[in-house]
Simulated scan of single mutants.
Amino acid sequence: MADQAHPAAPPHLPSFITDPGGTDVLMVVAAIILLAAVLGVGLLFLRLHTLPERIAHKSHKLQFEIVAVLGLLALFTHVHLFWVIGLLLALIDVPDFSGMFSRMAGALEKIAGIAPGRGGEAASDVEHGVVPPEGDRASVPVVAAAPTGQH
């Protein structure tokens, strides 16, 4: 490289200065480090962003879908409050009201003498005057259909 050096250049050049037309090793190493850093920070951001959804999924929360939607809203709108709300929902156990209400409905069906699981159907059958099956005929009274008001 000394025979191609500029006359104004110092006699000793640093090792990262390459020959004309040669491969710039420092630039290649810097590009690889930059690419790895961008991918690493991107993956870290994605893992942090999906934290509420992973917490809710791991603990089988009822509100998992709500947490997932809040995470998507936070991602696409850049409103960080959605992410915070999703994280709080993922950490809080919402009581299972459906189990309690289904037990209450089953007890009321038993008291009313309706077959288990037919509560809503049996009530609408009584209103419309539909005769229940043979097994339920004694337990559900048949009411005459109300007049429709048409002449």
Rank of each mutant, 00 (worst) to 15 (best):
D125Y: 00
A112V: 00
I92S: 10
L91K: 06
E127C: 09
I92H: 08
L108R: 05
A107H: 08
G117A: 06
P95R: 03
G129P: 11
D125F: 00
E134S: 13
V131N: 09
D96K: 11
V130A: 10
A144T: 09
F101Y: 00
Q150P: 01
G135A: 14
P147A: 02
P141E: 12
T148S: 15
I114S: 05
G149E: 10
R118S: 07
A112M: 14
V140E: 04
G117W: 08
G106C: 04
A107Q: 13
S124G: 03
P141I: 06
A145F: 13
G119R: 09
G129Y: 10
V130R: 13
G119V: 03
V84D: 04
L88M: 14
P132T: 14
S98E: 11
L89K: 10
V142G: 05
V84C: 02
K110S: 14
A146V: 04
R103F: 06
I111R: 04
T148M: 10
I85R: 00
G149Q: 08
A90Q: 11
D125E: 05
T148L: 13
A105Y: 03
M100K: 14
M104T: 08
A138Q: 14
I114V: 15
R118I: 01
S98K: 12
I85M: 08
R118T: 02
V142A: 01
A115M: 00
K110C: 00
A144S: 14
V142Q: 04
P95W: 10
V143D: 05
A107G: 01
G86I: 07
D96E: 14
P147I: 01
E127T: 03
G86P: 09
G149V: 08
R103N: 13
G129V: 07
R137W: 10
A144W: 00
G129L: 03
D125H: 00
M104L: 13
V131M: 13
G119I: 08
P116A: 04
L108I: 02
G117D: 09
L89C: 11
V84P: 05
S124C: 06
H128N: 09
A112F: 05
A138I: 05
G135C: 07
